[in-house]
Amino acid sequence: MAKLAKIMIAGEGGQGIQAVAEILAEAAYEEGKHVLYIPNFGVEQRGGVSVAFLQIGDEPIGSPKFEIADIIVALSERAVGRTRQYVGAPTVFVYDTMVATGKVELPTGAAKVLAIPGVETAKKELHPRVFNVMIMGAVIEATKVVSPENAKKAIEKRLGYKFEQDPKLRELNYRAIERGMELVGEVLRGGQG
């Protein structure tokens, strides 16, 4: 169980949470890892918080349900509330700086609580549409569950047909991964939390 990464990504519908989780899962599967991905709990498939549960490891995965996540990425106030119960001592809790921390209480007892300016960076430097890909980069940096190269391959597999039409999109997505990794790298090095 040592090498198993338990990942939880949560946000509002439309933020592209499940697409990110799916690409990550595919990338890890292609790397030959054991993967278990569950898109959502509950009836909240419409209008609720979108949650992705992802486990990636070197051994066959047992329980689909876990108590404590190794990394949680929460991208809205509701997502922070929804994921709090999965926070424990080993958890790295990442939230977006757009989350109004006045409206929702951040979790306590995590290994680290990090804020990254994802929405802002995507908007200013890249394009709002690649926000979720940037978040994927953040997860990759925080967990090291897949290599950036394989993540790019997985994106290529999924969006290749779009890239054919507009090669700039490819570059944009790749930059988003890298930028996402940098954001987490920066805050980790910055020693916040």
Partner: peptide, 9 residues
């Protein structure tokens, strides 16, 4: 529901 919705190899 888990088995229905989750992905694994």
């Amino acid at each position: 529901g888990y088995q229905a919705k989750m992905r694994e190899p």
